[in-house]
């Protein structure tokens, strides 16, 4: 067991993947608590599809992926928030509309330039080799920002999540918090997408929060438990992926699913 781990850590790309993965998992899990409770969980899913589209177009144009991806996904995040808040088009249909169109644009862009090859496979399902040293720096920075936000504005985030109207009535600028959370979610998705895969990254947002809600009763315990579950699942997933040579993103999601099952069972037993 220890030999395998030591062997695993001897590869620099594995160490980098673990570092980036932990940062991304932690960020998306914390943001996910608020998103899931506000019924915004599908925003993460839509954003990752937009990310895929932007990534594919950027590659086709021979641009640096981040340059196009980041502004496009950020813009999409603001747009999605607007749509869900104004309620012109029903939220879920709007999300599906945006997801599928971005996916379509992305697939066309890829097939025109390189054809449907391993590239598209990597975009959709992630590749552990896709992380650069620069990505690692960004991921750590993002993680610090999200953690700082959660520690400094924890109570306001709670209030805005629990009861937005009350928060606004007591003078909290709820709109800014919603924007900030959407923006950070967009960043997290862009950074995590290439490792986890566009189709799988939203699991990191939704699963840990839902898992801890099976058992925890207070918001504070949900937040702590979510962070712990996210990091544990990521580490387990990556180790499994290394040992059995399974795709990294999919393995992490599978472990998350397992944790969700365990916690659901535990929650049922505790409520007896």
């Amino acid at each position: 067991m220890f030999e395998t781990l030591a062997h695993m850590f001897s590869y620099p790309f594995m160490v980098r993947a673990l570092l980036v993965g932990c940062c991304i998992a932690l960020c998306s899990a914390l943001l996910g608590v608020s998103l899931v409770l506000k019924r915004f969980s599908m925003i993460g899913d839509s954003l990752s599809h937009v990310g895929f589209g932007a990534l594919a177009v950027a590659t086709a144009l021979n641009w640096a992926p981040m340059q196009l991806c980041l502004p496009v996904v950020t813009l999409a995040a603001f747009l999605l928030l607007r749509i869900t808040e104004s309620g012109r088009i029903k939220g879920d249909s709007a999300l599906a509309l945006i997801s599928t169109s971005s996916l379509a644009i992305g697939v066309i862009a890829v097939s025109i330039t390189t054809g449907l090859n391993t590239d598209i496979n990597n975009y959709l399902f992630g590749s552990i080799l896709a992380m650069s040293a620069q990505d690692a720096h960004w991921a750590v920075l993002l993680c610090i920002v999200v953690l700082a936000l959660f520690i400094l504005f924890y109570h306001n985030i709670f209030t805005v999540t629990f009861d937005e109207t009350f928060a606004r009535a007591t003078g909290i600028r709820a709109g800014i918090y919603n924007m900030l959370i959407a923006l950070l979610t967009a960043l997290t998705i862009v950074l995590g997408m290439r490792m986890m895969g566009a189709l799988l990254i939203s699991a990191l947002i939704i699963f840990p929060a839902l898992t801890s809600m099976r058992v925890c009763k207070s918001f504070f315990s949900v937040v702590l438990c979510t962070a712990a579950v996210a990091i544990f699942s990521l580490l387990c997933g990556l180790i499994c992926s290394y040992v059995w040579s399974t795709p990294a993103g999919a393995s992490v999601v599978a472990v998350n699913l397992l944790m969700f099952g365990l916690f659901s069972l535990l929650g049922k037993l505790l409520r007896r």
């Binding site: 109570h155 709670f158 629990f162 809600m213 207070s218 918001f219």
Partner: peptide, 10 residues
């Protein structure tokens, strides 16, 4: 998932 205390404090 919020405790009574958390809600009242907010």
């Amino acid at each position: 998932p919020a405790s009574v205390q958390e809600v009242v404090l907010s």
